[in-house]
């Protein structure tokens, strides 16, 4: 995909340079049609492809852990301890390439947009400072993010603890009780052991 975008960019730039040189002499309908494609259509399609590609790259674990404070969270995915992030990552329960994004983007309307806005704050904190001490989630981890995958899983629905008492399942679905109350820690850090 990278090379397709780069070759596409080179081709469009060459065509734009040709158009720039010949624009003054363009008189026929065909020449104007060519200008429409070269200047009006190709760059817009290429822009869409490039933004989509870069958006995909920003969801990858390597991107998230490229900031110093997130390095230990990346390492925690490979921990031997029985922590949520590690077991999900190591047992392929989440898309490994995009593990951070999959678990930390609330599956609600504009969840991805909120994540991008928060990402801007993270860039500010990384390069301009502005955050001291331990980092934490902006708000408590939502059960809906867990239940998106586990919610209708037989292993979840028939789990003894999840049905004792029977209304406990509804409390979990409503978010009255956090999944993390029982299933902690979310991340295990070797340097804290």
């Amino acid at each position: 995909m990278t090379w397709i975008l780069i070759l596409g960019a080179i081709a469009i730039i060459v065509l734009l340079l040709v158009l720039r040189r010949t624009a003054k002499a363009m008189a026929t309908r065909q020449e104007r049609l060519l200008a429409l494609v070269v200047m009006g259509i190709l760059p817009i399609f290429w822009l869409g492809g490039a933004v989509q590609y870069t958006d995909g790259a920003m969801k990858k674990v390597e991107f998230c852990t490229s900031c110093h404070v997130m390095e230990r969270y990346g390492e925690s995915l490979h921990a031997d301890e029985d922590a949520l992030a590690a077991t999900h990552f190591q047992n392929n329960r989440v898309d490994r390439e995009n593990a951070c994004y999959v678990c930390h983007t609330s599956y609600v309307a504009f969840g991805g947009v909120k994540a991008k806005i928060r990402g801007l704050r993270h860039v500010q904190a990384q390069y301009l400072g502005g955050h001291e001490g331990e980092i934490a989630l902006y708000e408590p981890y939502s059960n809906s993010d867990c239940l998106r995958c586990h919610g209708d899983a037989r292993s979840f629905l028939e789990q003894e603890w999840h049905n004792d008492p029977p209304e406990f399942l509804d409390e979990l679905r409503a978010g009255d009780v956090s999944c993390l109350e029982c299933h902690e820690p979310a991340h295990y850090f070797e340097d804290e052991s």
């Binding site: 990278t2 975008l5 780069i6 960019a9 490039a50 590609y53 870069t54 790259a57 920003m58 990858k60 390597e62 991107f63 490229s66 900031c67 990402g119 993270h122 860039v123 990384q126 390069y127």
Partner: peptide, 9 residues
């Protein structure tokens, strides 16, 4: 093209 090649935040 730079953003496609370099994924620096």
């Amino acid at each position: 093209v730079i953003t496609v090649l370099v994924h620096n935040p």
